[in-house]
């Protein structure tokens, strides 16, 4: 009984945790915002070079990755709903699907980058230094922005793996799920950034 009482008096402020996560998300949005700003300025200055360079990218791989990421964003949102409804098994399955989608995304990215690196197109390569300024800027921004985004995917995956085991060990339950909520918020942020990256980098004509 005394143990039960201790549990109730546990100091926790979920609203504050969530607000903290949102403040962190704001810094992330402005980080990518800065890159979008650089991108749009140089796109305005080197329109034809950016257009020619973007044709080198595979819209198909980009589109598949978009759909995979949107789907994973839904499954993690569903995982949160499942835990709120105290359906632990479904929550675990949904987090698992999200992680699987994240792996597919990185797998596609590996082949996309791999093909470019094979053709000698990577930051610092001799081919890159021979390109004119517009093409050079496009591919540098392409590698930096998608690379930074992929890094966020990896961080998100680590966060969700932690959530997976905490759900499994009942540390995340229908009374205390703020960690999963914040983990899901981070995953949606990764999706949100991709929503703007995909059309800007792959589809501009």
């Amino acid at each position: 009984m005394s143990e039960n009482k201790l549990h109730i008096e546990e100091h926790r402020d979920d609203e504050a945790s969530k607000l903290g996560m949102w403040l962190f998300i704001f810094t992330e949005l402005l980080l990518f915002g800065g890159l979008f700003l650089v991108y749009s300025i140089f796109r305005a200055q080197y329109t034809t070079s950016f257009h020619e360079s973007s044709l080198e990218l595979s819209v198909t791989i980009g589109a598949i990755n978009t759909i995979v990421l949107l789907f994973s964003s839904m499954t993690i949102a569903m995982a949160l709903s499942a835990i709120q409804k105290n359906n632990k098994k479904l929550a675990l399955i949904l987090i698992g699907i999200t992680l699987f989608c994240a792996a597919i995304f990185l797998f596609n990215k590996y082949f996309e980058w791999g093909a470019k690196i094979e053709h000698g197109l990577y930051p610092g390569s001799t081919l890159m230094t021979l390109l004119d300024r517009g093409h050079l800027l496009y591919f540098s921004l392409y590698f930096f922005m998608t690379g930074l985004h992929a890094l966020h995917i990896v961080i998100g995956m680590i966060l969700l793996i932690v959530c997976y085991f905490k759900v499994k060990s009942q540390n995340i339950n229908n009374q205390n799920y703020v960690l999963l909520e914040n983990g899901a918020l981070y995953w949606h942020l990764v999706d949100l950034i991709w929503i703007f990256l995909f059309p800007l980098i792959y589809l501009i004509t």
């Binding site: 926790r12 402020d13 979920d14 609203e15 589109a63 978009t66 759909i67 949107l70 789907f71 964003s73 839904m74 949102a77 569903m78 949160l80 709903s81 709120q84 409804k85 009374q175 205390n176 799920y177 909520e181």
Partner: peptide, 25 residues
């Protein structure tokens, strides 16, 4: 518990949003 004031979104709503997102893509 007062800590959990969060809204639970129904699965159907989330699925509909996904369909809309796919359509827009």
């Amino acid at each position: 518990m007062a800590n959990n004031s969060s809204h639970t979104t129904e699965y159907v709503v989330l699925a509909r949003v996904l369909l809309l997102l796919m359509f827009l893509t």
